[in-house]
Amino acid sequence: MNEQRLKLGSDAHAGTGGTSERNSGLGFRPAFLDKSTMTIYPSRLANGTLAPFHILDGLPDEVVITRDANGRVIEAKPSLVAGFERRGFFYTRAAAARALSEWFIPSWEQD
C-alpha cells in the first residue's frame, strides 16, 4: 500500500459512495483493513487525530514498511485495503458504494 494505490482507488470510485466525501454523512469513516490479521485501522493524521480522508501517515508501526526521514509513510503492508469503517464493520470502497446506492433514495423517487 502506498499513496499511488490510495489515489488509484479514490479515482476509481469518484462520484460514488466509495469516497469519503460521498459517504461520511451516513457514518462511514475512512479506514484500512489488514487482511492478514483482520484488524481495522481508522485513518488518522500523523498526530493521531481521526482523518476525514484516507492517509497513511497515521498508521501504526506494525503495518508500516517504510517511512521517510520526516516520518511520512512511504509504504505499508501489501495486505492493507483502503475502505471504510461503519458501526464496527469494514466496507471496501466497492461495498460502501453499493450500500449507498441501495440505501439512498433520491427525494424525487420517495413518493
Results as ranks from 00 to 15, higher is better:
Gly17His: 05
Phe90Asp: 03
Phe90His: 03
Thr37Leu: 11
Asp61Asn: 13
Ala46Lys: 10
Ile40Pro: 02
Asn23Phe: 08
Ala76Phe: 04
Phe90Leu: 08
Leu56Tyr: 07
Phe32Ile: 02
Ile55Phe: 08
Ala95Ser: 07
Phe90Val: 05
Arg87Tyr: 12
Thr49Arg: 14
Val63Thr: 08
Val73Trp: 04
Val81Ile: 00
Ala14Trp: 11
Ala31Gly: 03
Pro78Met: 00
Asn23Glu: 03
Leu33Asn: 00
Ala94Cys: 10
Thr92Lys: 07
Ile65Cys: 01
His54Met: 09
Leu50Arg: 12
Pro30Tyr: 13
Ala76Lys: 00
Tyr41Met: 04
Leu50Thr: 09
Thr66Lys: 14
Ala96Glu: 08
Asp68Gln: 01
Ala94Met: 14
Leu26Met: 13
Glu21Tyr: 15
Asp61Ile: 12
Asn47Met: 10
Ala14Lys: 11
Ala14Gly: 03
Leu59Tyr: 12
Ile55Arg: 07
Val81Glu: 00
Asp61Ser: 14
Ile74Gln: 04
Glu62Lys: 09
Ser43Asn: 04
Asp11Glu: 14
Leu45Phe: 15
Val73Met: 02
Glu62Ile: 09
Pro78Ile: 00
Glu85Ser: 06
Leu26Asp: 07
Pro52Trp: 04
Asp34Ile: 10
Ile55Asn: 06
His54Ser: 04
Ile40Val: 13
Asn70Val: 03
Arg67Ile: 09
Asn23Lys: 02
Thr16Lys: 10
Gly18Glu: 06
Glu85His: 02
